[in-house]
Every structure is written in C-alpha cells, then in structure tokens.
Simulated assay, not measured.
Amino acid sequence: MLTESLPFALETLRFPFPALAALAGRLPLGGGREVALASLLAARLALSVSTGEPLPPADRASRAAAAKVWLASLALPATTRVPFARCVESTTGTPLQVAGALRSLVAAAGAHLDGPSVQELEKLARQLAGT
C-alpha cells in the first residue's frame, strides 16, 4: 500500500459544507429547503472572504449583487430575508463584518437548520473572526 502521494497526483477535494448540502438535499421543496440553499450560498460567499487569497473586491461585489437577485426569487420566511441580504452584502467588506452578519443569520435561520448545519456556519463565523 502506498502511503506517500504520487508526484503528479491531485489533492483530494474536500467540500467545506457537507451538512448544509445534505440538509438541502433531503428537505422537501418549500421554505425549509430554500433556507438551507440560501444558507449554503451565504456560506460559500463568506468562505471566499476568508481563504488565503480572497477574491478581488470587484469580483466579490459582482457575486454579491448576483446572489441578492437570486435570493429575491426564493420563498424565504420573512424573518430571514433581511439577515440573508445583509450577510450577502457583507461579503464585500472585511472578514470581521462577514462574521457578524453570519452570526445574525444563524440566529434568524437557526430554527430552519439542523445541528450540524448550524455548527458549520458557526465554525465559519469563528474562522472569519479569527477566534
């Protein structure tokens, strides 16, 4: 058995939010699934701020604008619309701003998410806040 990686082998890809994706996949169509999908979108945008080489500000602004249009088409509960919009808008700012918006998103949408999904979002918020 080989324990070392081969010189030209690709690294194994790891999806950063498996619990959110699994939750969105198993929920029936409607509000709960759309909250899970919107949470996944917000988490992916937030992750682009925290990576070692973040996207340029112009690209982040473009992605945030497109995400806001997509969020407007979803049937989200009224109590979650503003936190989702703020979280997406915050991805054009600093990681600390995104962490705060992500925490308020978890507080608003947490009732629609399962435990592992909430943990993934909270872990990302801690990573963004630097704690």
Rank of each mutant, 00 (worst) to 15 (best):
T91V: 09
P54L: 08
F17L: 11
Q127A: 03
A9S: 06
F84P: 06
S90H: 00
K68P: 03
G30R: 05
A72C: 10
L102D: 15
A38H: 12
A43C: 02
M1L: 04
L76S: 10
T94Y: 06
A66Y: 06
S90P: 00
L6S: 06
W70A: 15
E11D: 12
G31M: 14
E89L: 14
L113F: 04
E120S: 00
D59K: 04
G93M: 11
P56F: 03
R33C: 11
L6V: 01
L27E: 10
A24M: 07
F8W: 15
L23V: 12
L2P: 14
T91E: 01
L71I: 09
A125K: 13
A101M: 00
P57H: 12
T91K: 01
P28I: 01
R44G: 03
L128P: 06
P77N: 06
T51K: 02
A36G: 05
F84N: 08
M1S: 08
A67G: 11
A24H: 08
K123W: 07
Q119G: 03
T79G: 12
T3P: 01
Q127K: 12
L27I: 00
L6D: 10
P18Y: 09
V98N: 04
V49A: 13
A67D: 04
A43L: 01
A24P: 11
V35H: 02
S117L: 05
R33P: 10
S62C: 05
R63M: 10
L10G: 08
S62P: 00
S48C: 11
P16I: 08
A21Y: 12
T79Q: 15
V106F: 06
S62L: 13
L96H: 03
E34R: 05
A107G: 07
V49E: 07
L128F: 09
V69L: 13
F8V: 05
Q97C: 02
C87P: 02
V82P: 00
F8N: 03
S5R: 15
L27K: 01
P16V: 04
A108S: 14
R33T: 06
V88Y: 02
R44A: 06
A109F: 09
A108D: 11
V118M: 05
G32I: 10
S73C: 11
A42D: 07
E4N: 07
R44V: 02
P83Q: 09
A111P: 03
F8M: 10
A19C: 08
L13G: 03
L124W: 00
L23S: 14
L23I: 10
A19T: 03
L74V: 13
L13M: 07
G31T: 15
R81T: 14
F8Y: 06
L113Q: 02
E11M: 08
A72G: 09
A66H: 07
L45H: 12
R44L: 08
L128H: 08
P95F: 04
L121P: 02
S39G: 08
A64V: 10
F15L: 14
A66M: 09
S104C: 02
A99R: 00
T91C: 12
R33W: 05
T131W: 07
A109I: 03
L113V: 13
A58S: 14
